[in-house]
Nucleic acid binder design. Structure first.
Length: 604
RNA sequence: GCGGGCGUAGCUCAAUGGUAGAGCGCUAGUCUUCCAAACUAGUUACGAGGGUUCGAUUCCCUUCGCCCGCUCCA
């Protein structure tokens, strides 16, 4: 259900974003382009801060993650291997009554009796509509319900739509039994319209000739480049498993309906980590057992006996800590643990981190679940295996530790692990369409490989949307403050309560008065002192209160004001300034020389 | 893509078959000793294209964009 009140809030946020220069509509002077958004001066700073913080947290503050910056256009085969050519280019069919769509290849076969109609006519007015419609009545279903639905459908096409339903007579009814038909919508039972292709990847041509051979795609996700470059990175970075590869970059999807401001855009940016881990069989061989002890919350520092479950939990908690660190407290977030039905066949678990946006749906009980900021997926060894099969290049790694450990195992243990690994590989191969005999041979070889210390790494994938996070930060920061002044005039101001770490401007620097050159000179001096290390904004226009208010809307956490005491009117206050806090308008007096350290402490 | 609503200054809103006005904002100036003060001056719009008309922002059509639903999951 639409929540008008919440939409008002969303509209206010959109309006502020434009007014203050956080987000503009792309190509606005030409009427805009659906699903594309630009970041203005404040938005660009905000986004840069977010990406920098992610990059620091994921790579520089760790020893086990390295970076990658790959191209947006890659060999088209990558998207066959990844499955995107198939899953992003589905044929869809639509139910003509409910307008609900289903994928052509996912319609469940149904049996029953088909009721066909050629139209309907009003006995009272003679008004008539001619359209064919067919509905399936399953065994045990009631033909009258099909007729009722048909009447409702035809009624829509008649100008006398308000007329009596009972006076509408169906025309040309015919029945026909069908077996295992895939032509009917699973919910409405109505015969589906023609198949139409839906390709969610944006296409282009590489080279000046626009032919089918030159078709390439703008990447729909950044992750695949990481898999495609896995061998190169592994070999050059001197990393050993477990380790990760991180990437930030643009991705493109031809969304059916871009919606909710920047939440679902056609061009967007992702921050993705592929964290490669040893298969559980290898962990067990090395550590004796895989640690599966359940722990609440963060499982602590990584341990050698962690299997995919622990690593998955670890990354979920690491990511939550990241969000908390930039001002999104746990109660603004939500979680969605994907059900077995929702999971891709190769995925073992996926936990989505959600944020409660103003447009997020509210359920009957009044709870807001939220919408997705990030998905943390345990993807088994699917991705690298796919690229190994499609490229013909080996994607396995050699694990010295495993080989050594393997030799010390009992023959029974070796056999058990070999068998389990064989089964997992066999399952992957057959599910991927490899013929059983070939799959058996290949899986057998893979299992022998394991005993020699070789395997294809498994992967945990924390994949976050930058633009969605920006939107979450904007929504989270948006605060209205209503104040009534001495004259009784009440006024509502907006304060963007960003965490200082992400705030686009960290410090506003003002002279108390513009027409006093000494104050201006001192303020300029402080601005020049701070601007190298902090995003600063100097402002001398208008009254001081107005300048504070402007910075509140920009989300600047601190403002520094130079007054006559700074210049030594009261000698004991010489070279001190007023430091004003955004969230509560609190003021304190600080020495100019202490400012850099004071700020650094609050911004790092 | 389909269905419903919408489109007037940067923002929030008015008015009109005879080409638009306010408040706030913004810019400059005067003034101003800490929370959108005052005064003066300036600034900016009928989303785009076509049609009907002597004339359209107003009526009609098309298109683009925004919001809501189907869809989607970074």
């Amino acid at each position: 259900m639409a929540e008008p009140k919440e939409n008002v809030l969303m509209e206010k946020i959109v309006s502020l974003c434009k007014r203050r220069g956080f987000v503009f509509q792309s190509s606005e002077i030409y009427g805009g382009i659906n699903g594309f958004w630009d970041y203005g001066p404040l938005g660009a700073e905000l986004k840069r801060n977010v990406k920098d913080l992610w990059w620091q947290a994921m790579t520089r503050h760790r020893e086990d993650v390295v970076g990658l910056e790959a191209t947006i256009i890659m060999a088209p085969q990558i998207w066959r291997a990844s499955g995107h050519v198939d899953t992003f280019a589905d044929l869809m069919r639509e139910c003509p009554v409910t307008r609900k769509r289903v994928r052509t290849d996912q319609v469940e076969p149904r049996s029953g009796v088909v009721y066909r109609f050629t139209g309907a006519e009003f006995t009272t007015t003679g008004a008539k509509v001619e359209k064919s419609l067919a509905l399936l009545v399953e065994k045990g279903g009631h033909p009258e319900s099909a007729r009722k639905r048909a009447r409702e459908f035809f009624l829509e096409s008649l100008p006398e739509a308000k007329a009596d339903l009972a006076a509408l007579v169906l025309l040309g009814e015919q029945t026909q039994p069908v077996e295992n038909s895939i032509d009917f919508h699973p919910d409405s039972n109505v015969e589906l319209g023609p198949s139409r292709p839906f390709n969610l990847m944006l296409q282009t041509w590489v080279g000046p000739i626009q032919s089918d051979e030159n078709v390439a795609y703008l990447r729909p996700e950044t992750a695949q480049a990481i898999f495609a470059q896995f061998k190169n990175v592994h070999e050059t970075s001197r990393q050993k498993l477990p380790f990760g590869i991180a990437q930030i970059g643009k991705a493109f999807r031809n969304e059916v309906t871009p919606r909710n401001f920047t939440f679902r855009s056609r061009e967007f940016e992702q921050m993705e980590l592929e964290f490669f881990i040893k298969p559980d069989e290898a962990v067990e061989a090395i550590s004796g057992a895989v640690n599966t002890q359940p722990v609440e919350g963060h499982p602590g520092e990584p341990q050698a006996d962690w299997g995919w479950q622990k690593w998955h939990q670890y990354w979920v908690e690491e990511r939550v800590r990241f969000y908390e660190g930039i001002g999104l407290s746990r109660n603004t977030l939500g979680f969605h643990i994907q059900t077995p039905e929702e999971l891709a066949h190769y995925a073992r678990a996926t936990t989505d981190i959600l944020f409660k946006f103003p447009f997020s749906k509210v359920d009957e009980a009044g709870n807001v679940k939220g919408d997705e900021l990030e998905g943390i997926a345990a993807r088994s060894d699917f991705d690298l295996s796919q690229h190994e099969r499609f490229s013909g290049k080996p994607m396995g790694v050699f694990d010295e530790e495993l080989r050594t450990a393997w030799g010390k195992l009992t023959p029974e243990k070796q056999a058990e692990l070999t068998q389990r690994y064989y089964e997992a590989r066999f399952k992957y191969l057959t599910k991927s369409g490899v013929a059983p005999e070939a799959a058996e041979k290949e899986a057998r070889e893979d299992a022998v490989g394991l005993s020699k210390g070789q395997y294809i790494p498994h992967v945990i994938e924390p994949s976050a949307g930058v633009d969605r996070l920006i939107l979450a930060l904007l929504a989270n920061a948006y605060t209205e403050v209503t104040e009534t002044d001495a004259k009784g005039k009440s006024e509502t101001r907006v304060v963007m309560k960003f965490h200082p770490r992400v705030a686009p401007i960290k410090v506003g620097v003002f002279p108390l008065l513009k027409n006093k050159p000494e104050l201006v000179a001192k303020a300029r001096e402080i601005f020049n002192l701070l601007k190298r290390d902090f995003a600063c904004f100097y402002d001398e226009s208008g009254a001081i209160g107005r300048r504070y208010a402007r910075q509140d809307e920009a989300g600047t956490p601190f403002c520094v004001t130079v007054d006559f005491d700074t210049l030594g009117e009261k000698p004991e206050l010489l070279d001190t300034v007023t430091l004003r806090h955004r969230d509560d308008s609190r003021q304190e007096r600080l020495a100019i020389r202490d400012l850099p350290a004071w700020l650094r402490e609050r911004l790092s």
